[in-house]
Amino acid sequence: MKALQFSRTGDLAALALVDVPKPVPAAGEILVQIKAAGLNPSDVKNVLGRFPYTTLPRIPGRDFAGVVVEGPAHLLGQSVWGTGKNLGFMNDGSHAEYLTVTADGVALMPKSLSFVQAASLGVPYTTAWDALERSQVAAGTRFLVIGSGAVGDAAMALGRARGAEVLVAVRRQSEAARLQAAGYRTLVLGAADALGAQVDAVFKGGAEVVFDTTGAWLPAAVSALATFGRLAIIAAPVDGLVQLPALALYRRGGVLVGVNSLLYTCAECARMLEHFGQHFDDGLLPLPVDLQASPLVEGVARYAEVNGGSSQKVILLP
């Protein structure tokens, strides 16, 4: 079968389109014919060597949507989607024509999603779902999302589906206008020391939950927290160091929640997909748009574009 594979790390020149044997499922596994596979920044970082536990050679790729062609009768022929921490790191991933995964590591696809749409959602939506679950976002929660990338968009959509009061903070007025057209309350980020007052003008007393998806607003976000508020984060500077105003955080009784999708197996992620997947069919979550579907044979070029800073969501098609 055709697959993207790397046998060393350090630069994208290590990635190539190769012919490898079609995988054979072990006991308890299924064989999925990949119809579409998402390309995430973490896939690029994996080839660049940012994950020391990756074993080589390796086929990268975490997110996928496809059809079960070998497995138990109740799954055979079913359209499924999935993601998980082992794919592309310790086990071969989804940037190939076929993938083996545990039978409990997939969820049935929502009927309203195409393969391309389903493949775009795994990492962003499971990351956002985990953030909302662990920071206890529920109906009526005053919820501030900082940033509007893939995870930020997922977080605001899931927050609204849960009935939270959603406020989104972004850098550009044009982005604020886009979100306002989609029905979200927004604010345009200015000086860091002004964030608390900006949020208080909308949420009197502060936000009960702040989700910083950028890694750049953690210190400022503390000032936007309500008493006993929760602050969730998914990113940090390259060196991992940030100056946290701990005094202000503890005086508020605040809680810091680190969110990392690479802590969850395919089976654990599949249960998340089952939880929120029905929301797409029920019309509570927006269907993905503006996706760049690209043949797998052009995958190396797409990796380079993502590494160069492209924000276009790429879906690889075997």
Rank of each mutant, 00 (worst) to 15 (best):
D153R: 15
L241F: 15
D282V: 11
L284M: 12
Q278H: 12
V209P: 10
Q243M: 04
V168H: 03
A224R: 02
L167F: 06
G159K: 01
L263P: 01
A192F: 04
V188S: 08
Q180P: 00
G283W: 06
L231G: 07
V170N: 03
F211N: 14
L262P: 07
T186Q: 03
A181E: 11
F280T: 01
L158I: 12
H275G: 00
E175W: 04
E274V: 12
D193Q: 06
G277A: 07
T186K: 08
C266Y: 13
V242D: 03
V222Q: 04
L285P: 02
T186Y: 05
S174N: 05
V238T: 13
S261I: 13
G205P: 02
G205K: 02
R185E: 00
L167G: 01
G183Y: 05
R252M: 05
T265V: 11
A181S: 12
V210M: 07
A224T: 06
F211V: 11
R172K: 10
Q198A: 08
A248W: 05
A191T: 10
S174E: 13
L189E: 12
L285H: 07
G283Q: 08
G254K: 04
E175A: 13
E175K: 12
S223W: 00
I234R: 11
V168T: 04
I233S: 08
P237Y: 10
V202G: 04
A182H: 15
L179N: 02
A154T: 09
L244Q: 05
E274H: 14
L179T: 08
L247M: 08
T186I: 09
A224L: 03
T213I: 09
V238R: 15
D153P: 00
T265S: 15
T214G: 07
V255Y: 13
A192P: 13
Q278A: 15
H279W: 15
D193P: 00
A164C: 00
V166N: 06
A221P: 05
E175R: 14
G253P: 03
G159Q: 01
V289L: 04
F276V: 11
W217K: 00
S223K: 09
A267C: 11
A194I: 02
Q198L: 02
G258W: 05
A235Q: 11
L187C: 05
T186V: 14
L262Y: 15
E274Y: 09
L167V: 02
A194Y: 08
V151F: 12
S223I: 04
A194L: 10
V199L: 06
G190S: 05
E268P: 01
V255P: 00
A154W: 12
G283V: 06
K204W: 14
W217C: 06
D193W: 01
V170I: 03
A169T: 07
A197R: 10
A155P: 03
L285Q: 10
V289E: 14
G205S: 04
A191P: 09
S223H: 09
A248Y: 03
F228K: 10
G159N: 04
A197Q: 15
G159E: 05
I233D: 01
A224C: 04
Q173R: 15
V168L: 06
D212C: 00
S174T: 11
R178H: 07
P286G: 06
P288E: 11
T213K: 06
A176F: 05
G206S: 01
G196M: 02
V255D: 10
V257I: 14
F228R: 00
V257K: 06
